[in-house]
Amino acid sequence: MNDTFTAYDPATLPAPVVAYLDAHDEKRYADVAALFAPGATVLDDGKTYEGIEAIRAWSEKSSAEYTYTSTRIGQRTADGSQVTVRVRLDGNFPGGTVVLRYRSEQERRDAFPHWLHTYNHHRGHTALAGKPPASRVPNLTGQYT
């Protein structure tokens, strides 16, 4: 996968992508939800939100939890249709700064197995005293019968 981004230029992006980013930044949650198909699914921070109303509630909750500013810093388009936009958030959440990548569904599907493995096997969780979830399952790999 190409990880080269160009400077953010809304004039070169599909209108629905820019409309989503604008509506999200302006806290127009009904407009955010209206950009999704009725059966759409959003995956964010390990949770799944299905359908227009769940997506509207997710966009409102995710925006209200912390105070932050967002800066659109880059973009790339692959095969003329797979769009990724990089957005830097600076705020009062843990870590203070994060760079998000708003991606296409196919890119998300391609990246998910690696992310899931890292999350469950390598990323420490505060609720588990810094251990990954897999450390709590003694027969996870099926080595014992």
Rank of each mutant, 00 (worst) to 15 (best):
N92T: 09
G74V: 01
D79Y: 11
L89P: 10
T69V: 13
T67P: 08
L89D: 13
E65T: 14
S63M: 10
G74T: 04
T71I: 08
S59T: 08
T71A: 14
G80H: 00
E65Q: 14
N92R: 08
E50L: 13
P94Y: 07
W58T: 07
G91V: 10
T77P: 00
G80V: 05
I55R: 04
R86G: 03
D44H: 10
D45A: 11
G74Y: 02
V85N: 08
A64G: 12
E53C: 01
T67C: 12
Y49G: 05
L43D: 11
L89N: 15
T77V: 15
P94I: 05
G74Q: 06
F93Q: 06
D45L: 06
D79W: 10
T77L: 06
G46I: 09
K47S: 13
R86D: 03
E60H: 12
G46M: 06
T84M: 00
D44L: 01
I73T: 15
I55P: 02
K47H: 13
G80A: 02
I55C: 04
G91A: 07
W58V: 08
T69C: 10
D45G: 13
T48F: 11
S59L: 02
S62L: 06
G91S: 10
S70M: 15
S62V: 15
V87A: 11
S70L: 14
I55V: 06
T67N: 14
G46E: 04
Y49K: 05
G51D: 01
I52A: 07
W58I: 09
A54S: 13
T84E: 08
L43Y: 00
P94M: 04
T71N: 14
G46C: 06
I52L: 12
N92H: 07
Y66C: 09
D44M: 03
G95I: 05
E50Q: 14
R76S: 09
R86K: 14
A64C: 12
T67Q: 15
T67K: 14
S81W: 01
Y66L: 06
G51C: 09
Q82R: 09
I73R: 13
A64P: 09
R76F: 07
W58P: 07
W58Q: 06
G51I: 09
D79R: 06
N92K: 08
S81F: 03
D44R: 08
R88M: 11
A57G: 09
Q75C: 02
E50M: 10
D90H: 14
V85Y: 12
E50V: 15
S70H: 13
S62T: 15
T69F: 10
R88D: 12
V85M: 05
V83K: 02
Y68I: 10
D90F: 07
R56I: 01
I55M: 03
L43G: 09
G80I: 03
E60F: 08
Y68A: 14
T69N: 13
I73N: 11
G80L: 04
S62P: 13
G74A: 07
L89R: 15
E53N: 04
I52M: 03
E65F: 08
I52W: 00
D45N: 11
S70V: 11
E65D: 10
R72L: 14
R88Q: 15
R76G: 05
S63H: 12
